[in-house]
Design a protein around this nucleic acid. Structure first.
Lengths: 215, 215
DNA sequence: GTCTATATAGGGATAGAC
DNA sequence: GTCTATCCCTATATAGAC
């Protein structure tokens, strides 16, 4: 009953769209551009997708799945600093892969209301996850922070993670087309934590961040 | 030789554009929309401005002036916590007034390259200003942070200030069309500082933030 | 300074042949 | 599944009358 073969053109459209959206920004890529690039007709593209938003939506679904995967927290034990480092790394990679979503986030989410709810859910889960991990750090004596401070910290970490790429793009030095160094972003997010750590672990974290930045 | 009277239509276009850009997002407002709203013809609008970017550019100029004004640091003495609070307040007000620039910042600055340089200059100045103020706090014994930590902190403060409004817009709870509370943003930025303050001042800052949030 | 009218271009989307 | 042809609509921008 289903299509005889896995739909190759459909998949080509999705993956090429992702590349073009990431490179040029979603608002600047039209369905015609995508069709041109793939050397198919616009009509063909519209056979596979109702419209451009439909493409965006399918890409968002993949992003959502990838983020849910990246945010999994070890449940059998309390998280430690290395866990955080690893998790941030996974999340940053995921954001990087679907960075077009973040570039015009506000406009995109206002235009497609149901995506806003789904994105909010991700943010909410991220926030809870951060609070949980920080609480674990407090329990294990590594971190020293009140409940209120943890809440504010979680908020700032979520925001920093969400907008790091955008911030990188508008900073002074970046003139060349070099890809931003995700390590820098992770480093800065970890520095948000650092202030609340006890001296030993604070140093430990600094070393970790330092080594990560240098390679 | 000059126009007999200060150009009223020109000014009306600018101020109305600002309102519409802020409300609907700059990419979603066309020159026709603006002309309609003002009940003038599109042709008339184009008599006063070469194109839409020309309008954006004039608004950016005003933003730039306002920001330069808002970022003035007292030079005759070391800054204290109240100074920071006041300055953040001024900057947040300024951002709020020209929030359309921030909503689609990356796309806007990539489209208008010279604006990117000017915006970078503002960011750079903000960064320096924050470093300076923090250094003053360290000198006066209120803050405890290394040079490296101050750099990271300044970076994070600049980023948080830049993207606070965007973050507010995509957070879970915000469904209604209520204006976001700038106080919340200022509070969170100050919480970035809090971790590095000595206990007494840390409490002082918490009180300040607390009272600011409650009214 | 302001209007009407219009040129131009491009994007989104569909119909119908193959 | 794919293509060609086309329609509709909107946005930017200009010319020329008033």
């Amino acid at each position: 009953m289903a299509a005889r073969a896995p739909n190759k053109t459909r998949e080509r459209i999705l993956s090429r769209s992702l590349i073009m959206f990431n490179e040029q920004g979603e608002p600047n890529v039209t369905t015609n551009h995508i069709a041109d690039e793939l050397e198919i007709s616009p009509g063909n593209l519209y056979y596979h997708f109702r419209n451009k938003d439909d493409i965006v939506e399918h890409l968002f679904q993949r992003f959502e799945d990838a983020m849910d995967q990246a945010m999994l927290v070890p449940e059998d034990r309390d998280a430690n600093l290395e866990d955080i480092w690893l998790q941030l790394h996974l999340v940053f990679e995921c954001i990087w892969e679907y960075r077009f979503l973040y570039r015009d986030l506000v406009d995109l989410l206002l235009r497609m209301r149901h995506l806003k709810m789904r994105f909010s859910r991700i943010l909410k889960r991220a926030h809870e996850s951060i609070v949980e991990v920080c609480s674990a750090l407090v329990r294990s004596g590594v971190m020293n922070a009140s409940r209120v401070e943890i809440e504010a910290l979680a908020n700032n970490i979520a925001m920093a993670t969400t907008f790091w790429l955008n911030f990188e793009q508008i900073r002074p030095q970046i003139g060349a087309k070099t890809d931003p160094d995700l390590g820098r972003g992770i480093y800065h997010v970890m520095m948000l934590l650092a202030a609340y750590l006890r001296d030993g672990e604070r140093q430990h974290l600094n070393d970790l961040a330092e080594s990560y930045i240098n390679g």
